[in-house]
Amino acid sequence: MTEEDSRARAVYDVTSGGNGGAGGKLMVTRGTGRRVREALGEVLEGLPVGGVLYVDTRGVELMDYSFADEALGILASRVAAGEYGDRHVVLVEEDRELLENIEASLRQRGLAMIRADEPGGAPKIVGEVSEHLLETLRAIYEAGAITNADLAERLGINHTACNNRATKLFKLGLIHRRKNTAAPGGRQYSYEGIA
C-alpha cells in the first residue's frame, strides 16, 4: 500500500447543509462564504494528518466574488500558512464561468488550488502559479511520488533549484512533502501530489 492510498479523504458538498441555511445553490456574500469556510475548516481539522478535503462546488449554480474570496480564497491562504498542518484542500469543479470568481480571488492573493473535475479526477490548477512552478507541479503529479534528485534530473535543473521550487509548491499547499532519512546519500525530500 503506498502512502497516498493511506491518506484520509473527505468530500464536502458545498450545497449541502452546514452553511447556516443560507444560499443553497446560490452562493453570494461574504457572510455566507464565512459560514461555509468555517464548516470546511472544521472538517479539515477533523482529518488525520496528511488528509485531503475535496471541496465540491459542482452543485452551486452561482457564486459571486465575495463568496469565492471569503470561502475559498481565505481557506487557501490559511492552508498555505500552515494553519491546518499537513492537511490539504482540492477543489472539485468543472471548467465553467463560476471558476472565474475563484480564479480572481486566488490570483489576488497570489495563491492557487488543485482542481479536479471529480474526486480522484485528473488534477488541474486554478489560481496563480508561475510557468516553471507549473512545470514542476506537472512533473510531480505525473510521477505520483518522486524524490528531489529524480525530480531535478527530470527537469534538468540542480538539486537546490529543484528543492526551492518544490518548497514553494509545498508552501502553497499543492503537494505533499516527506523527508526520506533512509535515502542513499543522506536525507532528501520526496514529493507527491495531493489529489
Binding site: 453570494v28 456574500t29 449554480e61 452561482l62 457564486m63 459571486d64 466574488y65 465575495s66 464561468e97 463560476l98
Partner: peptide, 27 residues
Amino acid sequence: ISEILTNKGYGLRERAAICATLSEICA
C-alpha cells in the same frame, strides 16, 4: 431574482451573470 429569471426562461449562465453582479453591488 434567480427564481424570477428562471421562470422567464433565462439560462444558468445568464442568471449567474445577473445575480452575481447584483449581489456584489448590493454588498
